[in-house]
Write a protein that binds this DNA or RNA. Structure first.
Lengths: 195, 195
DNA sequence: CTCACTAAGTGCAACGAGTCAACATTTTGC
DNA sequence: GCAAAATGTTGACTCGTTGCACTTAGTGAG
């Protein structure tokens, strides 16, 4: 990796860092894009060359959420029902985050207290809908555009938004999956088990 | 209703009309708020006294969607399963709109081709989540904050977003409701039928 | 009828997000 | 070394949205 790419990554990182710190300290809406650019010592135009929007500054670490999601379906322990694996994956993300402590907790508080960020977060998350739908379809031997698989993927992913707004997030996710699991078993009796 | 209120309603209407026409003709993003104000011959400040945002100009006719939704659950024909009534209601809105022809079709095309509008529309729609959840809970004799009822309400409403993105909207709604209906029967065997 | 009150509308300036065009500076491939 | 491409800067601009000070015109009480 050449020097140029390293420098580019460096400014990008300093932007993300400055943004995170300022947003955590003063709140998302109280910090302007110019403040962030100033703190990272670049111009606002440069900022927008690295990040497409103000919200994007915070979700730098999207990484391979999608891959993990698809893997949770595809590479689950043999014999495990599809929806059980999916439910575990959804609940798992939550508990992993919990043990990381204050850092992540503060971040989540910030996101959940800012409507613009809640929305953006949800949009990012929902991008994986199609990938998940296809993974489910492949797994259960349905055509790739099967509407039931698409619905299942959509509704399963939505359980996160549901959790975000609920008093007891874990109970909310479980309630959603109770419905979906029973529904899926009834609609696709052999889903994911027979060939 | 005095003259003042009539005048107010008139300018409001002319704003909404001008907006609809301009948006349909040139596209939402191509028309600025200043253009709309100009076309209705008022100042931008006045426009914002009538509508809280650009998007709101288009969704003037929200009316009592929520009431209809709750009514579809509460006042359904005796003996009808809860989810059957809900499904019919969701599909019904669609077919009613279809028969109104080109006017509404063009409107829907406009909304669905503009991300900002899709989002706004969805947000409006999802506001009814709590009301629906409570109606379902009341109907099935569960506590008002029952997580399964909340999940069902959320997922049922989401079927609309699912439909919006699908190739065959009707099939998408039906797929979602197949899952939810079976799930609900399994989780709440007496839901809405026994006392 | 009039006078004070209030709601509606105006004009203008401003703010923050995001874009654009022109220019300056590396860094890199050859 | 040198040209081309990547990277960054500057400054002005558009657009949604808000605040402020102001005018105009219905309205209701006396």
């Amino acid at each position: 990796m050449g020097r140029r790419e390293r420098k580019k990554a460096a400014t990008r990182q300093s932007l993300a860092d400055a943004a995170l710190e300022l947003f955590l300290r003063h709140g998302f809406d109280q910090v302007s894009i110019r403040d962030v650019a100033e703190a990272a010592d670049v111009s606002t135009t440069t900022l927008f060359k690295h990040f497409p929007s103000k919200e994007a500054l915070l979700f730098d670490m999207d990484a391979d959420v999608e891959q993990a999601l698809v893997a949770a379906v595809r590479d689950r322990a043999p014999g495990t029902p599809l929806l059980k694996a999916l439910r575990t994956h959804m609940l798992g993300a939550r508990s992993v985050k919990a043990e990381y402590g204050e850092q992540i907790a503060a971040f989540e508080r910030l996101v959940n207290s800012t409507p613009a960020l809640v929305d953006y977060h949800r949009r990012m998350w929902m991008r994986h809908e199609r990938a998940l739908a296809e993974a489910i379809a492949a797994d259960s031997g349905a055509p790739a555009d099967d509407p039931v698989c698409a619905a299942l993927a959509h509704l399963a992913l939505e359980s996160r938004a549901l959790a975000g707004a609920a008093a007891d997030p874990e109970a909310a996710v479980n309630a959603a999956f109770d419905l979906l699991e029973q529904g899926w078993e009834a609609v696709r009796p052999d889903g994911g088990r027979a060939s």
